[in-house]
């Protein structure tokens, strides 16, 4: 009994780390641009395909594969603001409403899924573990692959928080989240910060897609359910609140994993979304309220 509890807790923390990478990205983008990025999970899928191309097709090794997936989705992300969001804003002559952005990123999501289907086909691609072997712990054992996911998630999120706290452009990202007009008055160019924020957010998704590829399979729609779940996490943590998203992601990962012990697994998603709806009914601002990386 206790062995399996420990087992599920470890699995849950890894799952939580994955949710955190995706939810923190969504929350960051929302906090700075006020855009709900429906296409977020598609960057997870692109990360998976990039790691497949690097590791399976080009035999480059997992480290390069993960780096290529992260860098590739970052570069794709850099293009999203200037090519998609900025023109909408320019043509309209004012800030587009949230619903317009929602439809636009939903369109991007469908376009990317279809593009992947056309380019790579619909098969479920398998990727060998980035690292092999199993670590034996007193109560349980955990594969090095899962530990790798957790370690890299921690490094990436730690890096993001350090960037936001210390780097000149990280401070600019937080400044724009707090007050775009004031940010302009100190010489911050909003378009650049919007582009950078989107790229950072989706690169986290790309990195997690690359990390999780050996545990999931890679196929065009692999990321979409994760987007929806990350929305739930983001709302529970408070939209735009990165620490809230991180905590909510870890809690949900562990709770979901443990719930399987007592509740049939087909209820897993129902429980996650019931929790989200419950939080919205009681505390619409989320458990921790809105605040980008104070």
């Amino acid at each position: 009994m206790w062995e399996s509890v420990a087992d599920f807790v470890v699995q849950g923390i890894v799952l939580g780390g994955l949710y955190a990478l995706i939810a923190v990205g969504i929350s960051l983008i929302f906090g700075v641009l006020d855009v709900i990025n429906v296409a977020h999970g598609e960057f997870f899928a692109v990360g998976g395909y990039l790691v497949f191309a690097s590791v399976v097709l080009m035999h480059l090794g997992p480290a390069l594969g993960i780096a290529a997936a992260t860098a590739g989705t970052f570069v794709l992300g850099l293009a999203v603001y200037p090519l998609l969001l900025a023109p909408l804003r320019r043509r309209l002559g004012r800030r587009p409403s949230g619903s317009l952005y929602l439809v636009l990123t939903l369109g991007l999501s469908t376009f990317m899924q279809n593009g992947l289907l056309a380019l790579a086909g619909g098969e479920y691609l398998q990727i060998p573990p980035h690292v092999r072997g199993i670590l034996d712990l007193p109560f349980t054992s955990v594969s090095y692959q899962r530990l790798l996911v957790l370690a890299i998630a921690a490094v990436l999120l730690g890096g993001l928080f350090a960037f936001l706290k210390l780097h000149r452009y990280g401070l600019a990202v937080r400044a724009v989240a707090q007050d775009p007009d004031a940010a302009q008055s100190v010489g911050i160019v909003l378009g650049r910060v919007f582009g950078l924020t989107l790229a950072l957010g989706v690169a986290l998704a790309g990195a997690s897609g690359a990390l999780m590829a050996p545990l999931f399979n890679v196929y065009p729609a692999v990321g979409f359910p994760l987007t929806v779940k990350a929305f739930a996490i983001t709302i529970v943590g408070g939209m735009g609140n990165l620490v809230g998203a991180l905590i909510a992601a870890l809690v949900l990962g562990v709770v979901e994993s443990l719930a399987v012990m007592v509740i049939p697994s087909q209820w897993q998603n129902a429980i996650a979304f019931a929790a989200m709806i419950g939080v919205l009914l009681v505390r619409p601002q989320g458990l921790l309220g809105r605040a980008v990386a104070r």
Binding site: Q178, A182, S185
Partner: peptide
Amino acid sequence: SYLAQTGGLFPDM
């Protein structure tokens, strides 16, 4: 340089 009416500070920083 420009100073907005309310100061334009970033209150949470």
